[in-house]
Design a protein around this nucleic acid. Structure first.
Lengths: 246, 246
DNA sequence: CGGCTGATTGACGCGCATCAACACTGGTGG
DNA sequence: CCACCAGTGTTGATGCGCGTCAATCAGCCG
């Protein structure tokens, strides 16, 4: 993890960026990548615990996560935190601000991260000049929508947690050929996101470990038995998002 | 309700459409409305109980609801229905299909309705030629995202139902100056959407009626006391969406 | 009118929240 | 490098909100 800012130093990033296949650049003709990159600024680093934006801020546009992890959350009237979601590389941050130009949530980095800024004007000009750009961008938007919909329906606590682990694994699948996941967030964060109590998350993880399905150690989780895990989460929607090792 | 298809017969719809202020046409310069309308086909009627699309269908693009109401739902492995959301005039249908070109949900009309088709190619060409079109379209997308996020956080059954009623009222507020709502969906639909049991929805409505906050009669609900209702839903997010009568 | 789907209401039980006590971790400063 | 300590994780005991089941009733449509 000592070179996480290496990419941030390269100017024409899309041509060399490791996540270009996961972001909108992946749908753009290689011949047009340079033109696309010309519309973009260099990726910007965001340190762990640093906020990228806060609810109420005027939005300058969207962000595409290049590396790291973000937590998107709001605060209710009583000051309690509720979590809208997490963003990993290839995900868009700030989409909710499209509604009225103001951020509706807070976004904080859970690890040292880098983001590419996507101003609305850039989207507009790129749409007009780069073939298939709009379509590819909207594909990403659709991905975010699906991501937001995956807790629809009523699942048991175990089904929710299992779904979460499988989705997290699939989004990071390049890094988890051995089933090893690094969870950037706390148990409380996971619980809040899944609308469970931290104690419940903890208990379920303990149970899954006892069953030999996972190996859990604070922020490190290893998936030992994908088949059984997928069976436990049989009611998940959108298992198709990303690839889950068989 | 005897002339719900009247609009569908007019060719250059945006110029005369009653919901043009709520849809993307509302952000487009009046001088460009005709050009915009030229990209569009005449609104298409969809009868009650008729499906606009089904999960798995190849998507031909998006739809903008002009009149009526739609239910967007999926089926889990056991064939049980879970509801992603409802769509009222001014909302977009089919956004989830942007991900891979296939619909992820089923959409069925709960009332006789009309929709405007928005093919991807139309979005692309309109973006290139009508100023601010993209921005205005994305504003609508942001609205849908916010709509999907409003159940984030853990609310009690009562808070969820109250939030739902307030949101529904605000989205229809042109029609509900007297606090009268027509609910197109069944108690079961509402329950599924809010992740509650039908019995719970029924009980809470009865209680609210007993408290004199609403008057409930099957599909007709009249809000008698906005102030108290809003107080009951004090943990709602995004009350800002639309206007709730004071 | 008769059958059907949906709504209501009550009795009961369970899943998960809550609360509390304790263990562990990781960042900080001595 | 170690000691410290605030934040986090784990685990048990207890209670309650809401799901489940079932009986009854109300609208709806042929």
């Amino acid at each position: 993890m000592d070179n996480i800012y290496a990419l941030a130093q390269k100017p024409d990033s899309c041509l060399v960026c490791e996540v270009a296949q996961a972001c909108f650049a992946g749908g753009v003709d290689r011949a047009h990548l340079a033109e696309l990159a010309a519309h973009l600024q260099a990726p910007r680093p965001v340190r762990r615990r640093q906020h990228l934006f806060r609810a109420g801020d005027a939005s300058k546009g969207l962000f595409l996560v290049q590396s790291g992890c973000f937590k998107v959350y709001g605060l209710d009237q009583l000051g309690r935190e509720y979590i809208e979601g997490f963003r990993l590389p290839g995900s868009i941050l700030g989409l909710h601000s499209l509604y009225d130009g103001h951020h509706q949530f807070n976004a904080v980095a859970l690890a040292d991260s880098t983001v590419c800024a996507l101003a609305l004007g850039m989207l507009q000009s790129a749409s007009a000049r780069v073939p298939d750009f709009l379509k590819t961008f909207l594909r990403l938007v659709g991905q975010e929508l699906l991501d937001g919909a995956f807790l629809t329906g009523d699942l048991s606590a175990e089904e929710r947690l299992v779904s979460f682990l499988l989705r997290f694994a699939s989004k990071l699948h390049a890094d988890v050929s051995d089933g090893m996941l690094y969870l950037y967030m706390t148990r409380g964060d996971i619980a809040s996101y899944l609308r469970l109590a931290p104690a419940t998350v903890s208990r379920i993880l303990t149970k899954l470990q006892g069953d030999g399905v996972i190996d859990s150690d604070y922020h490190h989780i290893r998936i030992l038995d994908y088949a059984r895990l997928k069976d436990l989460g049989r009611n998940i929607r959108f298992a198709s998002l990303g690839q889950i090792p068989a």
